[in-house]
Design a protein around this nucleic acid. Sequence first.
DNA 1: TTGTATGCGTTATCAG
DNA 2: CTGATAACGCATACAA
Lengths: 326, 326
Amino acid sequence: MTTIKDVARHAGVSVATVSRVINEAGYVHEDTRRKVENAIQELNYTPNEVARSLYKRKSRLIGLLLPDITNPYFPQLARGVEDRMQESGFRLIFGNSDESQSKEQDYIQTFVQNNVVGVISSTNDPGSLSYRSLKIPVVFLDRISSDRPAVYADGREGGRMAAQQMVQRGSRQITVMQGPAHIRPAQDRFQGAIEALQDMGMSYQITQTTSFSFTEADRWARELFEQYPDTDGVIASNDITAAAVIQEAHRLSKRIPADIQIIGFDDTPLSNLLSPALSTIRQPAYDMGRAAADLLIQLIEGTAGEQRTIQMPVQFIERATTRSLS
Amino acid sequence: MTTIKDVARHAGVSVATVSRVINEAGYVHEDTRRKVENAIQELNYTPNEVARSLYKRKSRLIGLLLPDITNPYFPQLARGVEDRMQESGFRLIFGNSDESQSKEQDYIQTFVQNNVVGVISSTNDPGSLSYRSLKIPVVFLDRISSDRPAVYADGREGGRMAAQQMVQRGSRQITVMQGPAHIRPAQDRFQGAIEALQDMGMSYQITQTTSFSFTEADRWARELFEQYPDTDGVIASNDITAAAVIQEAHRLSKRIPADIQIIGFDDTPLSNLLSPALSTIRQPAYDMGRAAADLLIQLIEGTAGEQRTIQMPVQFIERATTRSLS
DNA sequence: TTGTATGCGTTATCAG
DNA sequence: CTGATAACGCATACAA
């Protein structure tokens, strides 16, 4: 590896001077600058980030902690984060937490061991000591924390929208799927739906699910129809379970949306590929990722304003699993 | 931050001794060890990886470069890599390349600047200088390189299987979708299919696609049916395009699989959620990720055997878009 | 068995 | 405007 020392020697100057031209700090004569720049070119030198990081006690690294990149909602968050970070020259140390506290702690530890300058996390417990004791900025993504920086979608409003659409479009025996209890956004959208249903004076049914995983989605769908065979409207806990509900409805020869309407949540890319295409409440995942990255950068650079929690709007996407509005 | 010096002082020994107990290297008296371990506990000390990395000229970091995490095939690869790396205490610096050479180079540069000890990459150009000049082990994932370590699926065989299944199950006007020209696996599966079709003496048709992106999938599907409205069997370039073909077939009131059979490629999680569920050629993405990580670790530790390119088997997954065998 | 001193590659301070 | 040098936190060679 070629070091600053090699460059200095090659250019006939001291390392200090080389450092100055690299960092554009302090004075350096035009001629010397050119000599150094040439040397850098010729030796194909790039500064060692590790040495830099050691001296400055901070790197250009960001920690990103997501529950499971295999869940189709998260890649978009990740991508938003990455794109924004990339633009500002930050790199990502990435990990899956599987919603496990210990894995999370593990990652956070190595984050600080590697001098990351900030972390973005979708944790279920933003208040935990692991985060409180961190001395670097943290932004919670897709998670709510009233007193700490966070970017999330308005899940409650999303739930409300889903319920209103269901009712407006004619469903009368609505079943609401309640997502995993420990995942805040899942509960928010659930609450929102229930709330709106009650406001409208509608009766409704509830089914429980305890995960967002692909493997169990079928089960939730089957259980739903076993419990409520006559339901004519399903507000799913997310797009994956909605997809499973579509399948199960087909199996039971129910016509969608004539016999039963279905609304998903997230608007993951797959929802538009389902048959029929899934009506859903869109969360702007990519933009949320970007926003979180943006906020974190501001926090790092000390340019963040007062507004440190960002709630993004959700949106009803009308596709083919809901009836048209007369 | 608490450093080795603090621990040393607190334990009443020298930093060298502390270092010895941390690394379990050299001799250290049982009593001193205990003292040091206590100090470590009390001060909640964890070694600074950056300083370590600087001294040893190698970190515990791995670079992972994928085209686009937003494409549902890649999260599984990523997850496999992460899980295996995690088991051995390696962390990932992750980036999306978007198939762009310059982004790739950028990332590779920062990988080495950060002293990563190895990289895993799904590049379209494994032979490029960026990789050849790397002095750390590289494993190509989902990409073929005859002379360099690589883990990939047997795409050609996958294509063959798809064609054979199609024919066995009765399609006679088969359309093969050709994926993006610059993506090797896409071409392999295409070649395999063509090859098998020819071997069986079947005639066939070809449509071109130039991307695997969600946004364009509909277009490929539409074009397919415009060109070959009477096709009764589609071998899609991947699951996403297959999903689009299913939708388009529905729109045209074709019955699946009675009027038209469809076979996808990859077996991404979404394929089982489509309606009808998609028959597809499975690539063991998660295992491929793990295998790549495993191979890389062996390379890093110098325990790798002769076998440095691993071809994983593919498998026909029968679901509902193909007819049953008599 | 333990401690001292040196260097890993950079940046920043301070003379010159 | 430039150079020598200390320091960042750690691991090792060498002495003791």
